[in-house]
Amino acid sequence: MIGLIVLGAFVSLIIVAYLVVMERDLASSVILFMAFGLGSTILYFVFSAPDVALTEAVIGAGISGVVFLVSLLQTQTKESR
C-alpha cells in the first residue's frame, strides 16, 4: 500500500514537473507548481518527515504560489518564444 502511494506520487511528480517547465502560460505554470508542492508534501509525509511536510504544505503549495502570481500579474503572463 505504502509502495503504491510512493510510486504514484513519484510518477505524478515527474509528470507535473515536466508540465511546469513546458507550459507556455506562466499563470498555469504557477498553479502546476503548487500542485508539485502538494505531491512533494505527500512524499515527505510517507517518508516519515512530517516536519518538512508541514513546511512544504504551507510554503510550497500556498505562500510561494501567491508571491509568484503577484509577480506575474505585475509583469506579463505569457512567455515569449
Binding site: P50, D51, A53, L54, T55, V58, I59, G62, I63, V66
Partner: peptide, 25 residues
C-alpha cells in the same frame, strides 16, 4: 498549537509561524 507543541509533536516555530501567516494571507 503547532508552535506551542513543537517539543512534543512534529512542527515548531517556523512551521506554525508560517501557518499563522497563511491565515492572514
Amino acid at each position: 498549537y503547532i508552535i506551542i507543541h513543537g517539543h512534543l509533536s512534529p512542527g515548531g516555530g517556523f512551521q506554525g509561524g508560517v501557518i499563522v501567516a497563511s491565515g492572514f494571507l
